[in-house]
Write a protein that binds this DNA or RNA. Sequence first.
DNA 1: ACCTGAACACCGTTCAAGT
DNA 2: ACCTGAACACCGTTCAAGT
Lengths: 230, 230
Amino acid sequence: MTPRTPAPRSRRDRPAKPALTHDAIVAAAVRLMAAEGLQRVTMRRLAQELDTGPASLYVYVAGTAELHAAILADLLGEVDLASAAGDGDWRDRLAQVLLSYTRVLFDHPGLAHSALVARPSGPHYLALVETILALLHEGGVPDGQAAWGVDVLLQVATATAAEQSARSGDPDAEKDHDALVEALGQASSRTYPRIAALGADLSSGSPQQRLAWIFRAVVNGTAGTPRSAG
Amino acid sequence: MTPRTPAPRSRRDRPAKPALTHDAIVAAAVRLMAAEGLQRVTMRRLAQELDTGPASLYVYVAGTAELHAAILADLLGEVDLASAAGDGDWRDRLAQVLLSYTRVLFDHPGLAHSALVARPSGPHYLALVETILALLHEGGVPDGQAAWGVDVLLQVATATAAEQSARSGDPDAEKDHDALVEALGQASSRTYPRIAALGADLSSGSPQQRLAWIFRAVVNGTAGTPRSAG
DNA sequence: ACCTGAACACCGTTCAAGT
DNA sequence: ACCTGAACACCGTTCAAGT
C-alpha cells in the first residue's frame, strides 16, 4: 500500500503545510518575526518555513516591502487604545496611547524601522489614528491642526522607537551614542559656544523623560500653531 | 590645445588607484553615491571601484554601517547654515536652516534613511546643532528646552525627508500613499467618526506647506513646554 | 492555468594563506 | 606585519519549464 500521506481521513487539515494564501503567509511571517526578529523575515527564509520555494511566495506577496508592511499592519493590533477612554487629562491619555504604540514598535526589533520606511496601513492603524484624533478633538484642538498633528505625533513616536531600538540590541550603536555624547561634551566653546554652554544638558534625562517631554511639546505645538501663516 | 590635466610628470599622483586609507575610501564612497545612489554603495561595489577586494576595505572601515555614517557626516557639509545669520525673524531663519538640511537629505536618495538609522556625527553635524541652538537661544527659548528640542527638530526633518524620499523614486510607495488617502477617505463615520469628519483635511496641503507648519509647531512646542511636569 | 526549480545577479563578513 | 583570494552563508527577484 505504501500510504505516504498516510490516512487523511478527515479533511486535509494537517497544519504541517497549510495552503498558501496571502493571509497564511503573513501569519507565518508574524510567527517567524516573533521567533527570530524582522531581519530574518526574508522571502527565502519564509519560503523555507512554509516548505516551498521563494518563487511561490511571489504569487501572493509583491515582495519584501509589502511583506514587512503587512507584518506591521498586523502587529499594530497590539497597541493599547483602551487608555484613551479613561477620565484623566486628555493629554495624559494621549501620551499613554502614544507610549503604547512606541512600546509595541520597541518590543519587536526592526519593526520601528519598517514603520519609518513603509507607511502603515490597515484597520489597526486607522483605529490608532482615530483614537488620537478623538483625543485632540476632546482637547479642543482645531480640526486642521489635529489633522496635521497626528502625523507628527506618530512620526516622532516611530522615530524615537527606531532610535532606541537600534541602540539596544546593537552594541556598536551604543558606542556611537557614547561617542556623540563625548563629542558634545568636548566641543570647544570657541567654535561651538551654545553646545559648550548647554554641556551635559544636551544628553540629559532618561529616554522615558525625554519621550514624555517630546509628546507634551508636540501636542502643545499642534494645539497652539494655526495652519495659516503664524 | 586640449589641456586636460596636462602632464603628471611629478610623483605617482595618478588618481587611478589611490592608496587605501579611511579618508580615501569615504571619498570614493561619496563619489559612488553621487553617481549611483546610496543603495549601490556596498562594500563589494566600492571595493570594485577601488580596484581591490572587499576584504581589504575591512582594514580601514568597520563595515557597511560605519561607511554609510561616514558618508552622511561628510554630506552634512552641504547644509546651508548661512541663512541663520540673516536679520529676519529667528523662527524663519531656523525654518530655513532645517529646510536646507531636509533638502540635502532629500537630494541624496537613501541618505535620509541612513540618518534615521545611524546617529549623525562629525563637525558638520556639530555645526548644525550649534546653529539651531543659537537660534533657539536668540529666540529666548530656555536652555533645557532648547537642548531637548534640537533633537526633535532634526528628527522630524529627517523623518519627513525619508518619507518623501521613499515616495518619489519608488512607484510602489506612491501607490501605498494613494491607498492610505483612499482608506482615510472611505473610512466609515460609524467606526471612525473623527477620520470621517476630517476627511480630505487629513491629507491636505503640499509637502512644503505641511513641513513649514511642522517646523513652526515643533518650535512653538519647544519654546512653550517646560521640562518639569507641565 | 497555475505553480515552481533553477538561475541570475547580487549581498556582508571572515579567515587562512600568501607576500 | 600587512593585505587579500576565496569561501561561507546568505539575499531578492525572475522566468522558462513543468504539472
